[in-house]
């Protein structure tokens, strides 16, 4: 066996052992993470539905929108959406009236920077979008905000990512309302 082959084999063996170890660990931990995500989603749904009941989750074929829940009594929709932030993909959920107006929104899984984009996890941060999307379009930059510009400063990419996703959700809800 040549020297280089021996080194390649050793490195390959280390990589294989590492992959095996992580696969075993993942088989134990993945179901716990999934349960935790489901519980978090249920808690977010309760908050976004604001005391109203929601129907069963439906998968949506629109790009960027993962699931939707109809709020009882035709009060609108709750959408689970994907957005792109500074740290990569972000998961957010928002409730809309039938005319596309945002009632409430929450940022869920994300890898945004601590002290900057992470601020979007605060409910106060997401409040700046409430009431937009119906007759008034959703602000796409913080200069378009009358209130709360200081609250969202320092994380432009996070803000824009959330705004784009919420805008997409609002337009989709309007289309669903027009189709009915």
């Amino acid at each position: 066996m040549t020297d280089i082959t021996e080194k390649a084999l050793k490195l390959g063996l280390i990589g294989a052992l590492a992959a095996l170890l992580l696969a075993v660990l993942n088989s134990f931990v993945a179901p716990i993470i999934e349960l935790r995500r489901e519980a978090e989603m249920r808690a977010v749904l309760d908050v976004l539905a604001n005391g109203e009941k929601t129907e069963e989750a439906e998968t949506v074929s629109e790009p960027g929108i993962l699931q939707r829940w109809r709020i009882s009594n035709d009060k609108g929709w709750i959408l689970e959406m994907e957005a792109v932030g500074y740290g990569g993909p972000m998961l957010l959920a928002a409730s809309y009236k039938s005319d596309g107006t945002i009632v409430a929104a929450r940022l869920m899984d994300n890898k945004e920077t601590v002290g900057f984009g992470k601020k979007a996890e605060d409910s106060a941060y997401m409040k700046v979008f409430e009431g937009f999307g119906g007759e008034i379009s959703i602000p796409q930059s913080r200069t378009e905000l009358a209130n709360g510009a200081d609250l969202v400063s320092g994380a432009t990419i996070t803000f824009t990512g959330i705004a784009v996703a919420l805008e997409k959700g609002s337009k989709t809800v309007k289309e669903w309302s027009n189709q009915r």
Partner: peptide, 14 residues
């Protein structure tokens, strides 16, 4: 992520 989701979220990418 499994056992301390709050800390995992708080530390994020770090």
């Amino acid at each position: 992520q499994a056992y301390s989701p709050a800390l995992s979220k708080s530390l994020g990418i770090f």
